[in-house]
Design a protein around this nucleic acid. Sequence first.
RNA 1: GCCGAAGUGGCGGAACUGGCAGACGCGCAGGAUUCAAAAUCCUGUCCUCGCAAGAGGGUGUGGGUUCAAUUCCCACCUUCGGCACCA
Length: 898
Amino acid sequence: MPYLSIRRKLPSFRIVKTMEENKELYNFNEIEKKWQNFWETNKTFAAKDYDKSKPKYYVLDMFPYPSAQGLHVGHPEGYTASDIVARYKRMKGFNVLHPIGWDAFGLPAEQYAVKTGTHPAITTQQNIENMRRQIKALGFSYDWDRQVDTTDPKYYKWTQWIFLKFFNSYFDQTEQKARPISELIKKLDAGKLCVGTDGQAVAANLVPAVMGEPVGTRKWYELNKEEKEEFIDEHRLAYEDEVPVNWCPELGTVLANEEVIGGISERGGYPVIRKPMRQWMLRITKYADRLQDDLKFVDWPPSIKKLQTDWIGKSIGAEVDFKVDGFDETITVFTTRPDTLFGATYMVLSPEHPIVDEIATGGQIKAVEEYKKAAQSKSDLDRTDLAKEKTGVFTGAYAINPVNETKIPIWISDYVLISYGTGAIMSVPAHDDRDFEFAKKFNLPIIPVVEPEDKTLAQKVEKGEYCFIGDGIAINSGKFTGLSTADFKEQITNWLEEKDLGSKAVNYKLRDWLFSRQRYWGEPFPLLHCEDGSTIAVDEKDLPLVLPQVDSFKPTGDGQPPLAKSVNWLNVKLPDGRNAKRETNTMPQWAGSCWYYLRYLDAQNDKAGWAKENEKYWMPVDLYIGGAEHAVLHLLYSRFWHKMLYDLGYVSTPEPFTKLINQGMILGEDGQKMSKSRGNVVNPDKVITDYGADSMRLYEMFMGPLEAVKPWNTQGVEGVYRFLNKVWRMVIDEPNNIADIDADEETGRLLHQTIKKVTQDIDNFRFNTAISQMMIFINHINRLETKPKKAIEAFVLILSPFAPHIAEELWQRLGNKNTLAHENWPKFDENLAKEKEIELAVQVLGKIKDKIIVSIDADEEEIKQKALASEKVISAIAGKEIKKIIVIKSRLVNIVIG
RNA sequence: GCCGAAGUGGCGGAACUGGCAGACGCGCAGGAUUCAAAAUCCUGUCCUCGCAAGAGGGUGUGGGUUCAAUUCCCACCUUCGGCACCA
């Protein structure tokens, strides 16, 4: 039994061995806490306002809504990317502003309050605390002193202040920008402007004796007090209007068009109906052109620009007047295809068009009434649902086509929207899909007026079998026949203007922004409704107007907001003794997020929302990272607010966000969207507990391109965790193997290649390939007997933006006293990064036959000789004639034979 | 229906401006270490045929341009995202 005795000895030997090695494990938990505390106590990442010694860099994250569920693995993705850039830029010598805050108003906290009676402020604070803990656990380099919370009165004081800027401004058409309303009044008082027939301000004729005033205009002094007030109110950028709104009974509030998806509320998924209500609106439509045009100044993904462009939906065309046969009435239609006027065979009005009742005749009156009623009771959902089949009724009346005096029937149908254009269209079934469908269903005539280039297509169009919506050559169009679509459009528009039958016109899909909500948990409007019906602003010095305590957070169900029940708060005695009531609506959640990036510039300022010097120093935001779900809503609204503030001189740049990147969604391990119901939600807390924040950060960046949608895979986290362990062991387990020696040639080259690739990859937001390069470097260096210290230090520095905790720890263990957060980013030497010898593929007719090794500066002739000397190549050529040899230096050789 | 993005091994993905497809990681297989396991290390891993050397095929499908195509062009299919009668 000699074996036994040997075995008995083994354990004691192993214990000795383990003690000798004294391995220190990678204790991420301890290290991460240590450095997070260090950064916090030392305020390592505090941004210095107007530090002129360094260039500034403002890197912004879309701030989160503090939900009860806490952080989601999707959040850290964008936050890690921006943090890498922030840390990298600091090491590159920039003064970096990298802030975070809380978009804390919103429905979930309020819904919870309605259910449980807990004040939303309490839940909100709890959620913020929890999420702040989670975010801090990831080691992001935020300047925590600049944290903002949109529900803090110290913050929303300024949201209200900005609202008053909207309320006290108008849009000057000539200058195309916002001006204080006081300037408008001044001009009216001075007689430079007068009141036009449409209620708009028009330039007064300075020489009335010669020209006479335009018909219907009135002088300012001719208006009484009420008329003046009404006129002013109609010019404010924030105004009240009775509008059909998206009323969601379940949520007890109205929603913006953008918040309703297919007749269902975006939040909660409840049905939404149309209902006319008194609402506060913001005149975003005045900015439509600038919001569109200024997109050319920003470096955003083209797809996001396109979404905004589509949302704004600018279309250029003409308004054309059609006389109604037998009535002293004209119906104006908007069309983008005035060149198809000769093909207009009928006209369609929206059921809500004001002229419908007047012109409906005889036997058709009843049908029209019934149709109108049906359309009214249809919800948006029904309207879209039934959209597959067109409906409509004939009014009994006829219009006269102004270009050829033809009588065409007037119909009504709900496929024509009252809210767009003039609420009436001319129908050209031969060249518009919707009109074609309608004409087929109701057997209306189809006259082709545009001939497509394609001959077979042209024949089909001729027979009325095919609807052609493209450009072509005009046919059946009187004296315009033969013109191209573009020429026709121009000539007919001029012709219409000459004959006073129409004019060039521009329309937008964009509607004014419905800005009020019948909810409790939002910013109160700083407005007072006086007994005489006028509305006045709360004085700026009395801001913030703080939300009152209420007994119940329930909406009343008839549209009366919860604030209406807070009697003490509601009723106000004005200094002049009059009684007034406060506005009881609150602002939508977007309000706070429209300008938070400005508050970060000067978060503690209680004299102003931000100091002008701070704004001039930090703005614009250099890099903005967030989800693509905000492509139109938040980004369009912020741009709008920013432009208004720009017009009034409060900010110095026309656009707030220079560069925008959207991180892609992270799916569950099953490749599906993460959701509680699917049970595939990954909790960041658990990942941090199991593998550490550095692994979490590294994994999220390693998964794939930042912008891509990609599934989570916990085993993938394990992979990057192993990588960090290798890095750890390189420095900690084998400290004796690190020495102050020069790197060998290959190691040096790989180091410089790695620095180069990581640097360029961060610059291009390609974090996944940067990480794989660092893995290649570590795999190499771990094979070395003795490791050059300088190379290891450089590596730790380039690793630090990705995995900052372990990097700080290793940096310290390597004998450095200070944090590496402000160390210089390692530089690479292009020459040292270059390979000396390279392997070239040798192809014969595009197929690889052999590989040759040549020096980097071998000339073409040398490469050719070497390639032709290869035995495999010789046998592949097999005596055939060589037609051509293509040499791509540093790539390959291709021999063409024939 | 329209618009946009994308389709590459078992999986996530890589490939500069048309120039060796599959880097890096996961998984899997085999081996070393271990009494055993974990951890770690080494080797292999696109597919087919072959013991092997090697041969052929291969980036959603079908065509085209080119000495050379994941990359450019045309048509189609699929998936994801957005819009949804905006005249």
